[in-house]
């Protein structure tokens, strides 16, 4: 990797060309940015017309946050122009016609972009999973989701004798205190069990709800309580 590549950065701008923010964490890119500085100030004179054209595109399309460029932080030249698409508040980035822009090769920027894309798609996947789980808990059919579902294999039936989540009595006890805002230790004291046992029950509860965190579990449980078919 050349020194120039090490200073490549991805800029995110508003319609006036002011740098608002940039996602630098884990991008394997170096660079220091002052929020509020001008977009075109970061670009060398020879690339300024291109930067202005880019800003013009932003205005015409009326999208402030779904466009970005990669700029060589040392030389100020434009490496790539990215375009993005919104998917439920998430942003996915693609490179637009890099050859025509006369880009210079930068695998570091490409890898960073791919890594950013991957994380955004993963977040979108988790979001879709959580929304589908909440919709099911709330008694909404799949027709209420944003896209119609394809025919799918028959889901496994919940275990007999339990509630709609398949919680055991002890798990249901933990859920009750969880929704009352108790932490793990107070729950353990209330139920006269070890704190590790509470954690184990919570892991099972998360799994049955199809969620990954305490906050998501509470959100899912509250959504289910508000639904016509309650717990």
């Amino acid at each position: 990797m050349s020194a120039n590549e090490a200073q490549a950065s991805i800029l995110w701008c508003d319609l006036d060309g002011g740098i608002l923010t940039l996602l630098m964490d884990d991008l394997a890119l170096n660079g220091v940015f002052a929020v509020g500085c001008r977009f075109d100030d970061r670009v060398s004179e020879c690339d300024r017309a291109l930067a202005q054209a880019f800003l013009g595109d932003l205005r015409r399309h009326g999208a402030a946050f779904d466009r970005a460029m990669a700029v060589d932080g040392a030389a100020g030249s434009i490496l790539f122009r990215f375009e993005g698409s919104r998917v439920d508040q998430q942003l996915l980035i693609t490179i637009r016609d890099p050859a025509r822009l006369g880009f210079r090769q930068s695998h570091a920027v490409l890898d960073a972009m791919a890594g950013l894309n991957n994380r955004l798609v993963n977040r979108h996947r988790e979001l879709a999973r959580a929304l589908a789980g909440v919709a099911r808990l709330a008694g909404l059919g799949p027709e209420n989701l944003s896209d119609p579902p394809p025919p799918q294999p028959s889901p496994q039936l919940p275990p007999p004798g339990g509630d709609r989540h398949g919680f055991s009595q002890r798990e249901q006890d933990v859920v009750t205190f969880l929704l009352d805002g108790y932490g793990n230790r107070p729950i353990a004291e209330k139920l006269a069990i070890e704190e590790s046992a509470v954690k184990a029950r919570l892991r099972t509860i998360y799994r049955k709800l199809g969620v990954a965190s305490r906050a998501q579990a509470i959100m899912a449980l509250l959504a289910a309580k508000k639904a016509p078919r309650t717990l």
């Binding site: 698409s85 998917v87 998430q90 996915l92 980035i93 693609t94 490179i95 972009m113 791919a114 894309n117 991957n118 955004l120 798609v121 979108h124 996947r125 979001l127 879709a128 999973r129 929304l131 589908a132 099911r136 799949p142 989701l145 944003s146 896209d147 119609p148 579902p149 394809p150 799918q152 294999p153 889901p155 496994q156 919940p158 398949g166 049955k208 199809g210």
Partner: peptide
Amino acid sequence: SSATQLLMAHLYPRICATECR
């Protein structure tokens, strides 16, 4: 690859509609 990822992202509401027990 990115454009294909975008396509896959659009499919997630359908994919995740499958109840996963």
